[in-house]
Design a protein around this nucleic acid. Structure first.
Length: 279
DNA sequence: CGATCTACCTGATGGC
DNA sequence: TGCCATCAGGTAGATC
């Protein structure tokens, strides 16, 4: 579910809402969400008594810094939500797997119906060998400065289709199925273009489309689709879906040329595009 | 190496 | 009303 804009929206709100708070106690229901820890106690004991000192994001991962130097790593998978509760009395949603109780009152809850997401506590210097998928993340399109010419060199080094490359977290960190389609439309490029076939102008357009689309989506607090499964930490839906040019718009007129948006299946997932505007 | 499939899960939706 | 198939913002691992 959540891609870079949704995770960044949550990061900014968490920075205001939970940084400076101390964890009094932790409730973990079941082991699946905290599967990197062998026991519940092994997870909860690393959080209890700790103060949260900062919140960072790497790609789609949230990293909550603790005052003992450790990190609480959160990956939301397809259906994970972090929700700020002002008190324990607020009704608990089904599929609530982890609850952090703060000393000053209030909670942070992790809810995840499909349980693809996970939480774990680790030491920063052990990230590299304990969490290879995080250590091997590609560059973050908003955090890491890169010239479009360097970006072009990286595209030319790969011999793969454009969309899978944009979504490859080891190449670029944070882009998923929605934003890959939106970025490709904004750049006027098809999902199945060979990454080493782009002209200098197309590379520049793609780089610009990537940065602008992601920034725009953050301004709109991310995308919530029909099921409204993406919610921010206050339980509110995002607004960027109203700005989508192609994603989930099969058969609707292209906002640029009026021809119907097409939907194709590739690699088991849907891609949306305008056959006229994307070449 | 790249492309494609499978598995991990629950829940919503649509056809019959 | 129910039953079944299909689909969903992610990722890793197997296979060809």
């Amino acid at each position: 579910m959540p891609e870079l804009p949704e995770v960044e929206t949550m990061r900014r709100d968490l920075d205001k809402e939970v940084v400076g708070r101390r964890v009094k106690s932790v409730e973990a229901t079941g082991l699946r969400t905290i599967r990197r820890h062998k026991t519940k106690k092994n997870f909860t004991s690393k959080l209890e008594g700790r103060k949260i000192t900062g919140v960072e994001r790497k790609g789609k991962y949230l990293l909550l810094k603790l005052d003992d130097g450790n990190l609480l790593v959160v990956h939301l998978g397809m259906s994970g939500q972090l929700l700020r509760a002002k008190s324990a009395k607020e009704p608990t949603l089904k599929h609530t797997h982890v609850v952090l109780n703060f000393t000053q009152g209030g909670q942070l809850r992790y809810v995840d119906p499909r349980t693809f997401g996970e939480l774990f506590v680790t030491q920063p210097d052990e990230l590299a060998h304990e969490v290879p998928e995080l250590a091997h993340l590609g560059f973050d399109p908003l955090e890491d400065v890169m010239s479009w010419t360097k970006f072009g060199d990286m595209l030319h080094e790969k011999k793969t289709k454009l969309k899978p490359l944009l979504m490859d977290q080891r190449f670029l960190a944070g882009i998923g199925n929605i934003y890959a389609d939106e970025i490709l439309f904004a750049a006027g490029l098809r999902y199945d273009r060979d990454s080493n076939s782009l002209t200098a102008q197309e590379i520049r357009r793609l780089y610009r489309a990537m940065v602008e689309t992601l920034q725009d989506a953050i301004k709109h607090r991310g995308s919530s689709l029909a099921d409204e499964q993406y919610r921010d930490i206050f339980g509110e839906v995002g607004d960027f879906q109203s700005q989508h040019k192609v994603y989930d718009r099969e058969g609707e007129p292209c906002r640029r040329c009026r021809s119907p948006i097409a939907r194709v299946k590739t690699g088991g997932r849907s891609s949306f595009l305008c056959e006229q505007c994307q070449v």
